[in-house]
Design a protein around this nucleic acid. Structure first.
Lengths: 205, 205
DNA sequence: TGTACATCAGTGAACGCGCGTTCACTGATGTAC
DNA sequence: TGTACATCAGTGAACGCGCGTTCACTGATGTAC
């Protein structure tokens, strides 16, 4: 069942798996990709990882615990992707645009994972402090880009929420197909974001 | 179980209810308010409406059908509230601000309903054309307000998505408690929105 | 270097419940004559 | 105006399955001596 990266972790013929925790997370990401959130249940997950359905309980307290770990991996990768794609861009507007484009790309290319990351199931999990921290990384990237402007104004906090909300709003609406890029005659996501964020240009110095 | 408005529709002692469809939707809204989405299942719903658990099937094909109807009611009320609160405001910026404030208020005061309206369960329902139409009403309100500017510029379409995304993004982030208004030293939602939307001011003429 | 033993990751099977849905029925309503 | 009958909204009971979780167990691993 599991394909690609997850297969690496499958050592079917050893009784002790060795890195089952990582393998489970990887399989979960696979399942999300191919079957969506609805397809992600512990039994299917165990099956895909080549292990009994009780085995995950050696590594995760319950399903929530596992979902939290999967989501956290998602947030980490999202932040890493944003950092990687925006390296070298020091001009504020360019950098902000790239960060947003990266955010949108991540969401559209990993839609079920993104849905999980912002699902209400996960929002209820107050007991996962590292999750909240990791989730804050992408916000920090945008926040940092804005506060390093040559002439930061006193409206910077509001500018930051505005850009952040714009980023997240655009992304969810695009990912859920409530905004259709083609209708705007935009050549690409880059183009679309440039023209949308451009409206803030005066404030981006 | 059902309280308030829903109670009106409860006629426990008549075999034929008479307006069960409306009563079910009303009870569903009650349940959402008190128990959240997780608490909304057909059995509990029937119980709250004072009817057997098979009764709803005379009015709704299946659970999805019912959820769609509930969500549609939500979209209708949202749009109505926005219209009502923004009546008389003709200055573009004022009107936009009021529409956004109204949107945010609706979401925070009807959080589970709002969650349902934008849930992935609902997003999958392509077979409910009236639902999609009703869902578009609040977008139309913002779009209309912007296109009626004295000097509409050619960036109006992008302006519209930007404002719309800002509106929806702010709202979800506030409703899911990922943005905390107090941290911004904003006196009220109105104040917060004014200062956030204010950043677009130059473009709002 | 080999043996005894604690540890614990994984097995296999079963529990149990929440919940959507179905089915044969019954009671109320309204319309034709 | 009263009676026969079709219609259909609601009843009561049961089906069934997906899925999280538990439990007594077993096989592998590593450490002390």
């Amino acid at each position: 069942m599991a394909t690609g990266a997850a297969a690496v972790f499958q050592k079917k013929f050893k009784y002790h798996h060795g890195q089952l925790r990582e393998a489970l997370i990887e399989s979960a990401l696979d399942i999300l990709k191919t079957q969506g959130i609805e397809g992600l249940n512990l039994r299917a997950l165990a099956r895909a990882t080549g292990v009994t359905q009780a085995a995950p309980y050696s590594h995760f307290r319950d399903k929530d615990d596992l979902l939290a770990a999967v989501a956290e991996t998602g947030f980490q990768r999202l932040a890493m992707q944003m950092v990687a794609e925006a390296t070298g861009l020091r001009h504020t507007q360019e950098r902000i645009e790239k960060l947003i484009v990266s955010y949108i790309r991540f969401a559209t290319e990993n839609r079920p994972l993104f849905q999980l990351m912002f699902s209400r199931e996960l929002a209820q999990m107050k007991n996962y402090p590292t999750l909240a921290m990791t989730a804050g990384k992408s916000y920090s990237l945008i926040s940092a880009a804005l506060s390093k402007r040559p002439s930061p104004a006193e409206d910077t906090p509001f500018m930051t929420v505005a850009i952040w909300s714009l980023c997240h709003g655009l992304t969810t609406l695009i990912a859920e197909e409530k905004i259709n890029l083609q209708q705007f005659g935009a050549a690409s996501v880059e183009d679309f974001v440039r023209r949308t964020v451009g409206i803030f240009a005066a404030h981006l110095v």
